[in-house]
C-alpha cells in the first residue's frame, strides 16, 4: 500500500497530502502521524493540501481528526494551501472545520506555528 511521507522540519512535522488518496491510506496516515507526534515530540503539524483538488466529507473528517488528535498531544495543526474552490465547496457541503488554522503556504504556516508557541510562552493563550 502506498504511504504518505511524514517529514520532520525542526520541531514540526510536514505532511503533503497527495491527490486522490485511498481511504485506507488516509486512515493509516492518522495513526502514523499520532505516533510520530509523540516519538518526535513535535510541536506542530503542517498539513499541505495544495495539490488536493477535491476534499469530500471523508477527507474533511480526516483533516479534522488530525487537528483534534494533535491538539490533545499538545501539537498545533495548520492546514496549508487549501485551494479557494475547495474552501468554498467545503463550506457548502456543511464542513466548515471551524477549529482548523489555515495558511497560504508552508512558510506562512511555519510562522503561524512559531508565533502560536511564543504566545503560549508569554502566558497568553496560544489558540
Amino acid at each position: 500500500m502506498e504511504r504518505i511521507p511524514i517529514l520532520k522540519m525542526g520541531p514540526y512535522l510536514l505532511v503533503t497530502i497527495q491527490v486522490d488518496m485511498h481511504d485506507r491510506v488516509a486512515m493509516t496516515l492518522q495513526d502514523e502521524l499520532t505516533q510520530r507526534i509523540v516519538s518526535e515530540r513535535a510541536r506542530g503539524v503542517l498539513l499541505d493540501i495544495s495539490s488536493v483538488d477535491v476534499v469530500d466529507s471523508f477527507i474533511g473528517r480526516m483533516i479534522g481528526n488530525i487537528a483534534s488528535m494533535s491538539r490533545v498531544l499538545d501539537a498545533e495543526t495548520v492546514v496549508v494551501g487549501m485551494r479557494p474552490a475547495v474552501a468554498i465547496t467545503l463550506v457548502e457541503l456543511g464542513l466548515a472545520l471551524p477549529s482548523i488554522r489555515t495558511a497560504l503556504n508552508v512558510d506562512a504556516g511555519m510562522t503561524l506555528l512559531k508565533s502560536a508557541r511564543k504566545m503560549a510562552g508569554n502566558g497568553r493563550p496560544a489558540r
Partner: peptide
Amino acid sequence: SLVDQTKIVTAASELAR
C-alpha cells in the same frame, strides 16, 4: 467554472462512496 467543477466532483465523490 473551477468552483462548479469542484462542487460536482465533490458531490459525485460523496455519492460514489
